[in-house]
C-alpha cells in the first residue's frame, strides 16, 4: 500500500519507487568525535554536555554550539578531540578513584592563572598545563575542577591527586592537555545572547487554559446541564 507523496522533496527529487539498498557507509563517513563542555552561567565550572561528530576542531566547535547551546543558557564552550582525553577507571558512587591510584610523593603545584618568570621556566623544561575534570556521580556529567602543571598526562593525574585528591566523591577523572582544548573567546561573549524574539520556542509562551475555560463556559451556556 502506498500513497502519493505529501513530502515536497519526493516529487522534486523524482525518487525511484524501490531503489536497490545502498552500500553500507564507510567507517569514518560521519567524521571523528569531539567532546563538548559548556558553562551554564558566568563564573560557574565548565561541565561536560556530550559528543559531536566533526571534520575538524573548528567545525566541532560550531556543531557543539548548535547542539548544546541552541536551547539552553550558555556563557562559554570548550571542545576537545575525544582522543585527547585521558580517562581513569570508574569507581563506585561513594568513594574516590584517586584512592586506587598508586600514591606518589608529589608536591602539589596547581597551574597558576598568569605566567611568571618561574612558569616560563617550567614550560621550557617541558611542562604543560592540564585541565582536570571529575565525575561525582555515575549518570551525571564531568565538571572542571581546575588545572595542574606536569610533564605528561600520567604526571598530571598524579598532580591532580595531590591537588584535588581530598574531594569526595570522585567516580572518574578526565585529564586533558590544556592546549588540546578549543575555548570560546571572552571577547566574543555576545555570541551567547539569545534574541527575545524566540519566545515561540519556550513552553511558557503557550498559555491555553484561558481559551479552554472560555470555550467550556460558552458551551455549557448552549447546552444546559441535566
Amino acid at each position: 500500500m502506498s500513497l502519493s507523496s505529501l513530502d515536497p522533496r519526493i516529487a522534486r527529487l523524482a525518487l525511484p519507487d524501490s531503489p536497490p539498498p545502498p552500500p553500507d557507509k564507510p567507517e569514518l563517513d560521519q567524521f571523528e568525535t569531539y567532546e563538548v563542555f559548556h558553562q551554564k552561567k558566568e563564573g560557574t565550572a565548565y561541565a561536560y554536555v556530550g559528543p559531536v561528530h566533526a571534520p575538524s576542531l573548528d567545525v566541532a566547535f560550531l556543531f557543539g554550539k548548535e547542539q548544546y547551546s541552541r536551547r539552553f543558557a550558555c556563557t562559554g564552550l570548550w571542545v576537545t578531540p575525544t582522543s585527547a582525553v585521558q580517562v581513569t577507571a570508574y569507581g563506585d558512587d561513594a568513594g574516590s578513584i584517586y584512592d586506587t591510584l598508586p600514591g606518589g610523593q608529589i608536591e602539589p603545584t596547581e597551574a597558576p592563572l598568569s605566567e611568571s618568570a618561574e612558569e616560563q621556566a617550567a614550560y621550557a623544561a617541558g611542562e604543560e598545563d592540564y585541565d582536570i575534570f571529575h565525575l561525582k556521580k555515575r549518570g551525571k556529567a564531568h565538571a572542571h575542577v581546575g588545572k595542574v602543571r606536569a610533564s605528561s598526562p600520567a604526571m598530571a593525574l598524579q598532580q591532580a591527586k595531590a591537588v584535588f585528591g581530598e574531594q569526595r566523591p570522585v567516580v572518574n577523572v578526565w585529564v586533558i592537555r590544556s592546549a588540546d582544548i578549543l575555548r570560546s573567546d571572552e571577547d566574543d561573549r555576545d555570541i551567547w545572547s539569545t534574541t527575545p524574539e524566540k519566545k515561540y520556542r519556550e513552553a511558557l509562551a503557550y498559555k491555553v487554559q484561558d481559551k479552554i475555560e472560555r470555550f467550556k463556559a460558552e458551551n455549557s451556556e448552549n447546552t444546559p446541564q441535566a
Binding site: 567532546e35 575538524s56 575525544t82
Partner: peptide, 23 residues
C-alpha cells in the same frame, strides 16, 4: 544521505581515525 555525501567526502581528513565517544 546521498545528497550530502560529497560534502562529507570533501571535508574528511585523510588522517582521521575513528574513536567512539566517551560518555
Amino acid at each position: 544521505e546521498e545528497n550530502g555525501a560529497w560534502v562529507r567526502r570533501a571535508l574528511l581528513s585523510p588522517k582521521a581515525k575513528y574513536v567512539k565517544p566517551l560518555a
